[in-house]
């Protein structure tokens, strides 16, 4: 009766790490390819958005917390990593730069994770709409701080960031993000995230500490948003505070909802589609936001479970 080995837990454990290694190696190989500059740029946008959407999905999808602050975490990571590179990496010798870039990214992620902790702990007493408003406020505070901070260029933006982000970096880190989120959730420990989403009272009666899970989701989600920010900074080479307003957060939320909350693969797919869509619609780009709105309305009516949510209904 329970000899269904493909579904058994230990087997599922072992495959994951091999996949991650394969994905990272493939990503590094991609770095050596020669691509059209435009396509290269779009592909990196895709990778960065996958990181953002998959990490937000841990908070909004699996743990069921409605966060509108992801652009804020991204901004923290972007500015931290960019400032670090401008101070240390630019003066460093050529061979040390990839190492310093990794340090910059991890530092950006770490500072973003700290801000995730700072937002998480006090605001997780709130639920639903209230939490959404607090995280929205947090994102705006970050933007306003950056806008007034001379050290990071204030309103005129941070210029001259070295171009370190490559396709390899982007997709290697996107693979790591997917791996971390999938591994976390697909474990006995990780079932707690979904339990908290489904029923907090029942979860705490089962010995699960809801606050701890929510804070963990916020910290991990913010960490990867920070990484995405660092990649973004070293890809665009210019940071403007207006790029991290709450519309950016909404963009990421739309990816999560469109993919189907709590499905990593679908959310990543939605991130790809929604990044490519404005590029395809470039001739009518001023209608992009209208299209977004129409998409969400249509989705809510036709496929409330998510555009790419097929088959099994159980969270995987």
């Amino acid at each position: 009766m329970f000899s269904r080995s493909p579904l058994s837990l230990p087997t599922a454990c072992q495959g994951a790490k091999r996949w991650l290694i394969a994905a990272v190696l493939c990503s590094i190989l991609l770095s050596f390819g020669q691509f059209n500059r435009y396509y290269l740029g779009v592909a990196m946008d895709v990778g960065i958005n996958i990181i953002l959407a998959v990490s937000l999905n841990l908070i909004n999808g699996y743990t069921g917390q409605f966060s509108l602050g992801h652009a804020g975490f991204m901004a923290v990571g972007a500015y931290t990593a960019a400032k670090f590179s401008l101070v240390f990496a630019v003066a460093a010798p050529e061979p040390a730069r990839p190492v310093l870039f990794l340090v910059a990214l991890v530092l950006g992620g770490a500072v973003a994770a700290l801000s995730g902790l700072a937002v998480g702990i006090p605001s997780l007493r709130l639920k639903g709409d209230y939490l959404a408003i607090v995280t929205l406020g947090f994102g705006e505070i970050i933007r306003v701080i950056v806008q007034n901070l001379e050290a990071v260029g204030a309103a005129s933006g941070l210029k001259g960031i070295p171009k370190y982000t490559t396709l390899g970096w982007t997709f290697a880190l996107a693979s790591v993000t997917v791996y971390v989120v999938v591994s976390l959730v697909n474990s006995t420990y990780g079932r707690g995230f979904i339990a908290v989403k489904d029923d907090e009272v029942a979860a705490s009666s089962m010995g699960i500490n809801p606050v701890r899970y929510k804070v963990t989701a916020f910290v991990v989600g913010a960490f990867f948003a920070g990484i995405a920010g660092g990649l973004y900074a070293h890809h665009k080479q210019f940071l403007a505070p207006t790029g991290f307003d709450f519309l950016k957060s909404i963009d990421i939320v739309v990816m999560v909802i469109l993919g189907g909350m709590g499905r990593t693969a679908s959310v990543a797919l939605a991130a790809v589609v929604l990044t490519l869509l404005p590029e395809v619609l470039r001739p009518v780009s001023e209608y992009r936001m209208i299209l977004y709105a129409l998409l969400i309305i249509g989705l809510m009516m036709a496929r409330p479970q998510g555009l790419f949510a097929f088959g099994r209904r159980a969270v995987k």
Binding site: T188, Y189, R191, I194, D198, D199, A314
Partner: peptide
């Protein structure tokens, strides 16, 4: 619970698994 409170997006197996935390 008086009104059953199972984890509605989890399987039977995972409902019990979550409680072994």
């Amino acid at each position: 619970f008086q009104n059953i409170r199972l984890f509605s997006s989890l399987t039977v197996f995972d409902n019990v698994r979550a409680a072994t935390q």
